[in-house]
Design a protein around this nucleic acid. Structure first.
Lengths: 339, 339
DNA sequence: TCCTTATTTGAAAGCGCTTACAGCCTATAT
DNA sequence: ATATAGGCTGTAAGCGCTTTCAAATAAGGA
């Protein structure tokens, strides 16, 4: 079954040079005369030789591959992120190994080790649960440990440490602005719905609370609801909810659509009787009717920027990058709000 | 920056055995006495040794890794597939390298080569555009070529060849049944909407046409519409469409929701004046209102089955598997049909 | 107890590539 | 013409692991 693969010795023999010379032309070393380079290249082209990555790796300890770790890829945001990350990485000649770790730190740690064991050149951790700010401490030591071996980029998470670089959305401002807008349009009983205690979820809540405070509206804990991340579950939870509200800010679009389903069930007019703002601007945001006003977190920018930074540390060894880069969000107005 | 990594020699020295013995216990060879195994294991645990995959690969030419190739991962179906594939692979101790190739054969070929150059143990190609049945010939030679090196599994595609194994949905039957049901409920002008000429799209159309024929309804080409895979685009295309129709069968849920948006715009009652059936049973199917009747293609079964088969050829060298396995679909009834 | 056979173990030869080092050859300067 | 530097090329030593083969040890039988 296995084809016999030709190796550097074959090429050397055919081109009548030493394997060292072949290696040099393959790696574009400048210490080769144009004549021999041509000669060797001709042979390589002819027989279609590709260096064995294992042997290369053994010497160089690298494979031009970066590891991407996501909690799950079965989620619109994550899959988009992976898509754009890998797309951008490819333009720099890097391939990617994917790991879906689940949401538990234990699984993450195991996957990080898996990726490291594959000798990736860098690690990209996507997912807001990689937190670590004062309020929301989580065990991120394994990330710092990983960073001793390869540069680590965290997308939408905040991890301090040497050789760790973060790219995050300006979630606070995004939600602050959206909430303020709701208030300007007369809403005072605004529900904040979230399904997680992740780094970004916390920032979103902060934006929500800040907006209320700045408009002299008291923050009421009963208006900050924790829900299950499923449309029907959200709808049902809301149906059982006793507090009155006339607007919803949700930490993702699925939850927001759940609120919309609630409105539909209660026959509330949207946006007149209930305004709704989602997050992520994903495809479900335009599947519903009326379509969902949502906050677009510019995943493309996010991913491209992340990769660019990463490459600059891998290739140029630039280690004095700013630790954290913030990407702004856009409010996309549609039918579930008056603005 | 780089930590000095301990290797098999260190372990051998610490455990006072030869590297051969260490290698044997690491690989679970049975030719090691329980006593020495314990001794070596203890050292390994203590210092946390992991074999260098490159060195392993150099000898074994494998990395316990399979390559997964999808046209795009920024698509609910694909990302789900990747998720379940990698999840199942993990249970067998395999990791995965991901490639997003785009839809062009050229990109696919390049990515296949990339994955092969990483010495994956097998290749999984997801995506219905890997066709190759009589009607829809496409250049799949590079797949057969790849199959000379490693087993290849094709999910939702049909590629003939040695060492190539396919797992496909029974799309013909699924659409046949759904269409028949629409007919039974009195619909005769049924629109079939698709965005691609992929292998499954063709099967779906076949099911649609077969159902019409079996109920003595003439197949009208103007009722088979090619659309752009975007909800709004579909809606607009339908608004400009001149033929009359009272039901829609769509080749995915996004398109179906587009039809629903059309109905909303035209103020048609769904399902009374327009019935709609989607495909994939994805999250957008429950985001809309009324919720979408959709065909669930059991992606989990599909992926698990694929991996199981693949493993049996990798590990047990079973090459006499049936070439193609067919997975049935389920019709999930919701609000856009009367059934 | 001694010899035969089975079971463990170790030494060493690769796997294919990179790269430090040395050697060779040509070109320039004396 | 001869010494000298500099550009190319080749030799060989790893990189860390697997595995064959032979040696060593343990076990079993007479």
């Amino acid at each position: 079954m296995k084809k016999d693969v030709i190796n550097i010795y074959d090429i050397a023999e055919m081109a009548k040079v030493s394997i060292a010379t072949v290696s040099r032309v393959v790696n574009g070393s400048d210490k080769v005369s144009e004549k021999t380079r041509k000669k060797v290249m001709a042979v390589i082209e002819e027989v279609g030789y590709t260096p064995n990555v294992f042997a290369q790796g053994l010497g160089l300890n690298t494979m031009h591959t970066v590891g991407i770790l996501v909690p799950t890829i079965s989620d619109i945001y994550m899959s988009n992120a992976v898509y754009y990350l890998q797309e951008k990485l490819r333009t720099y000649g890097y391939d990617c190994i994917l790991g879906c770790s689940g949401f538990e730190p234990e699984g993450k740690q195991r996957h990080v080790n898996m990726l490291l064991s594959k000798h990736v050149d860098a690690l990209i951790l996507v997912g807001s649960t990689y937190a670590g700010n004062g309020e929301h401490v989580q065990d991120t030591d394994y990330i710092r440990e990983a960073a001793q071996n390869v540069p680590v980029c965290v997308v939408n998470g905040n991890v301090q440490g040497e050789n760790i670089y973060c790219t995050v959305n300006d979630d606070v401002k995004a939600v602050y602005d959206a909430t303020s807008k709701l208030i300007e349009y007369g809403h005072e009983r605004i529900l904040y719905l979230t399904d997680s205690q992740s780094y970004s979820a916390i920032k979103k809540r902060k934006g929500y609370e800040q907006a209320l405070e700045d408009h002299d509206i008291p923050v009421r804990p009963e208006l900050e609801m924790h829900v299950v991340n499923h449309m029907h579950a959200v709808r049902d939870q809301l149906l059982e909810c006793k507090v009155a509200f006339d607007a919803v800010v949700a930490s993702n679009d699925e939850i927001a659509v759940g609120a919309l389903k609630y409105a539909f069930k209660k026959e509330l007019l949207v946006p007149e009787q209930l305004s709704i703002v989602g997050y992520n601007n994903s495809s479900v945001a335009i599947a519903c009717e009326p379509e969902l006003t949502s906050i677009d977190n510019r995943v493309v920018d996010m991913c491209y920027r992340t990769v660019e930074r990463l490459i600059s540390v891998i290739e140029n060894n630039e280690t004095d990058l700013e630790h954290k880069v913030v990407i702004a969000c856009d409010l996309i107005s549609r039918g579930t709000t008056e603005f």
